[in-house]
């Protein structure tokens, strides 16, 4: 099974849901076993929810995407320019999740 390696970062308070650790090295299969399609950002969100999230799932995922108010960056670019959940992940991609819901 081929895999891809990613650097995943959480900030803006979101790291508190992930063992209070900002940066994580994540290795996931390059194709989604259920659909045999290449792994996309939505698959990653579910993977993080099922494998790295420690508490309060409702603060990270809502229905099939991240909760409104969480910004996602793909290699420093707003994911809204990259197809959001449909973005197909590549080896060594850097994915950043930032919560905007915490106080200022």
């Amino acid at each position: 099974m081929t895999t891809i390696s990613l650097k995943v970062e959480f900030s803006g308070g979101l790291e508190l849901l992930f063992s209070n650790q900002r940066s994580h090295a994540v290795t996931i299969p390059s194709t989604d076993p259920a659909t045999s399609k290449p792994t996309d950002l939505q698959n990653l969100i579910f993977y993080l929810r099922d494998n790295l999230l420690k508490e309060r799932v409702e603060l990270f995922v809502e229905t099939d995407t991240v909760r409104p108010g969480i910004l996602v960056l793909v290699n420093d670019t707003d994911w809204e320019l990259e197809g959001e959940g449909d973005y197909v992940l590549k080896d060594n991609d850097e994915i950043v999740f930032i919560s905007t819901l915490h106080g200022g």
Binding site: S11, G12, G13, L16, L71, L73, D76, D78, V96, I98, S99, T100, H102, G103, G104
Partner: peptide
Amino acid sequence: IVMYAYFKKLDYFSTE
């Protein structure tokens, strides 16, 4: 505001 802070690598604190 959050993107500005991120791109400028500003030092801020975010705990509820």
